[in-house]
């Protein structure tokens, strides 16, 4: 079982034995949460026409894409380490499963939203896509809160 193996790794042992390592990683995880949510708000509120309405979508989506990339990378890196010492229990937790489902769908959908940017193709403002993106990232945020507050 992969989760049992994760709990047996040396990194998991370090995490279990040091509250400071855990707390520091958790603090960085919270920081990356703010970066992810700020970028997700920027991108999707622009697509919804609720923010920077009179600026070109690309001007807003470009920085948002960079912010999402950096924020998700940092939150996944810290999140994986935080997951290690409690892999079996977390993997069995409904809120955690929801969180992972929202992470995959929100990140995947964001990739679809901005994939035309690198190639230089114009991204049209699309309220429906903005609304769906916002719902997915809010779902991630709420299930993340549920995971730490309901256990």
């Amino acid at each position: 079982m992969i989760f049992a193996w994760m709990e047996a790794t040396a990194a998991a042992g370090v995490m279990r034995n040091s509250l400071w390592v855990t707390a520091s990683l958790s603090a960085l995880h919270a920081l990356s949460f703010a970066v992810v949510m700020g970028s997700a708000f920027l991108l999707n509120l622009r697509l919804l026409g609720l923010l920077f309405r009179d600026r070109p979508v690309r001007e807003v989506a470009g920085p948002a894409k960079a912010g999402l990339g950096a924020g998700v990378a940092m939150s996944v890196a810290t999140g994986v380490l935080l997951f290690l010492p409690r892999a079996v229990a977390a993997a069995d937790d409904d809120a955690f499963r929801m969180k992972m489902l929202f992470l995959l769908t929100a990140a995947g959908f964001a990739w679809v939203q901005v994939r035309g940017l690198a190639a230089g193709a114009p991204v049209t403002a699309d309220r429906a896509r903005g609304a769906l993106g916002l719902v997915l990232w809010m779902g991630l945020a709420l299930s993340a809160c549920a995971f730490i507050l309901l256990e």
Binding site: A30, A34, M37
Partner: peptide
């Protein structure tokens, strides 16, 4: 936490 995401996320 949700307020944090919205405020700090946009202030940045």
């Amino acid at each position: 936490l949700m307020g944090l995401g919205l405020s700090v996320g946009t202030i940045v």
